[in-house]
Deep mutational scan, measured.
Amino acid sequence: KFNKERVIAIGEIMRLPNLNSLQVVAFINSLRDDPSQSANLLAEAKKLNDAQAP
């Protein structure tokens, strides 16, 4: 279950337009470290993406 959620979360994070490459890598590394947190990490990535919108 967590592996599928992690793959989906990674794909979504990679498509967030307002994150820089270091932020994307940090979120992906966090997902690798704890796949059970996929939903929480994706939500945090989306919040950061929205906050950094031009």
Rank of each mutant, 00 (worst) to 15 (best):
K1E: 15
K1C: 12
K1L: 08
K1I: 12
K1V: 04
K1H: 14
K1Q: 15
F2M: 06
F2H: 14
F2P: 14
N3V: 05
N3P: 03
N3F: 07
N3Y: 07
N3K: 03
N3W: 15
N3C: 15
N3G: 05
N3T: 06
N3M: 04
N3E: 15
N3A: 06
K4H: 11
K4D: 15
K4N: 04
K4G: 09
K4F: 03
K4Q: 15
E5T: 04
E5H: 05
E5V: 05
E5L: 10
E5N: 07
E5A: 06
R6P: 15
R6T: 15
R6F: 15
R6S: 15
R6A: 15
R6L: 15
R6N: 15
R6K: 14
V7G: 07
V7D: 15
V7E: 15
V7F: 14
V7P: 04
V7S: 06
I8A: 08
I8Q: 11
I8P: 04
I8S: 03
I8Y: 12
I8C: 12
I8E: 14
A9I: 07
A9H: 03
A9M: 06
A9G: 03
A9S: 03
A9Y: 09
A9T: 07
A9K: 04
A9C: 05
A9R: 03
I10Y: 04
I10L: 08
G11I: 10
G11H: 07
G11K: 13
G11V: 09
G11L: 09
G11T: 09
E12C: 08
E12D: 09
E12R: 09
E12F: 15
E12A: 13
E12I: 15
I13T: 01
I13V: 03
I13L: 07
I13C: 03
I13D: 00
I13K: 00
I13N: 00
I13Q: 01
I13F: 02
I13S: 00
M14I: 10
M14K: 09
M14W: 04
M14H: 04
M14A: 04
M14T: 07
M14L: 12
R15Y: 04
R15E: 05
R15A: 11
R15S: 12
R15M: 07
R15N: 13
R15D: 05
R15F: 03
L16G: 01
L16M: 12
L16V: 00
L16Y: 03
L16Q: 02
L16I: 01
P17A: 08
P17D: 05
P17V: 10
P17S: 09
P17I: 06
N18V: 01
N18A: 04
N18M: 03
N18K: 01
N18W: 12
L19Q: 00
L19A: 01
L19Y: 00
N20M: 03
N20A: 07
N20K: 09
N20H: 12
N20Q: 04
N20G: 06
N20I: 05
N20L: 11
S21N: 11
S21H: 08
S21I: 13
S21R: 12
S21P: 12
S21Y: 12
L22H: 14
L22N: 05
L22S: 14
L22Q: 14
L22I: 10
L22D: 10
L22Y: 13
Q23A: 01
Q23F: 02
Q23S: 02
Q23L: 03
Q23P: 00
Q23C: 03
Q23W: 02
V24S: 03
V24H: 03
V25K: 10
V25L: 11
V25F: 13
V25D: 08
V25E: 10
A26V: 12
A26N: 11
A26W: 09
A26M: 07
A26Y: 10
A26R: 10
A26G: 07
F27I: 05
F27R: 00
F27C: 01
F27M: 07
F27E: 00
F27Y: 06
F27K: 00
F27N: 00
F27T: 00
I28R: 02
I28P: 00
I28S: 02
I28K: 03
I28Q: 03
I28V: 06
N29D: 09
N29W: 08
N29C: 10
N29H: 06
N29K: 07
N29E: 10
S30F: 12
S30G: 03
S30H: 13
S30Q: 14
S30Y: 09
L31F: 04
L31E: 01
L31T: 02
L31D: 00
L31Q: 01
L31N: 00
L31S: 02
R32S: 14
R32M: 15
R32Q: 14
R32H: 13
R32C: 13
D33H: 13
D33R: 12
D33A: 13
D33Q: 09
D33P: 02
D33K: 11
D34K: 10
D34L: 05
D34S: 11
D34R: 05
D34E: 09
D34M: 08
D34Q: 08
P35D: 05
P35I: 08
P35V: 07
P35G: 08
P35C: 15
P35K: 04
P35W: 14
P35T: 06
S36K: 07
S36R: 07
S36P: 02
Q37H: 08
Q37G: 15
Q37T: 05
Q37P: 03
Q37C: 05
Q37F: 07
S38G: 05
S38W: 15
S38H: 15
S38N: 15
A39E: 09
A39Y: 11
A39I: 12
A39K: 15
A39N: 13
A39W: 14
A39T: 12
A39C: 11
N40I: 12
N40V: 07
L41D: 01
L41P: 00
L41A: 09
L41N: 02
L41E: 02
L41G: 01
L41W: 06
L41Q: 04
L42P: 00
L42H: 02
L42G: 01
L42R: 04
L42I: 06
L42V: 14
L42W: 04
L42E: 03
L42Q: 03
L42A: 03
A43L: 10
A43T: 11
A43I: 12
A43V: 08
A43P: 01
E44A: 12
E44L: 04
E44I: 11
E44W: 11
E44Y: 10
E44D: 03
A45S: 02
A45L: 02
A45K: 00
A45C: 02
A45M: 02
A45D: 00
K46S: 04
K46I: 12
K46G: 03
K47D: 07
K47G: 06
K47F: 09
K47T: 11
K47C: 07
K47E: 11
K47N: 08
K47P: 00
L48W: 05
L48V: 09
L48G: 00
L48S: 02
L48E: 02
L48R: 04
L48T: 02
L48I: 08
N49E: 01
N49W: 01
N49K: 01
N49F: 02
N49D: 05
N49P: 01
N49A: 03
N49R: 00
N49I: 02
D50G: 08
D50E: 13
D50V: 09
D50N: 12
D50F: 11
A51S: 11
A51Q: 09
A51C: 06
A51R: 11
A51V: 11
A51K: 13
A51D: 06
A51F: 11
Q52M: 11
Q52A: 07
Q52N: 12
Q52W: 04
Q52T: 04
A53T: 12
A53H: 07
A53D: 11
A53P: 06
A53W: 07
A53V: 09
A53I: 06
P54I: 11
P54V: 13
P54R: 06
P54W: 09
P54A: 13
P54G: 11
P54E: 11
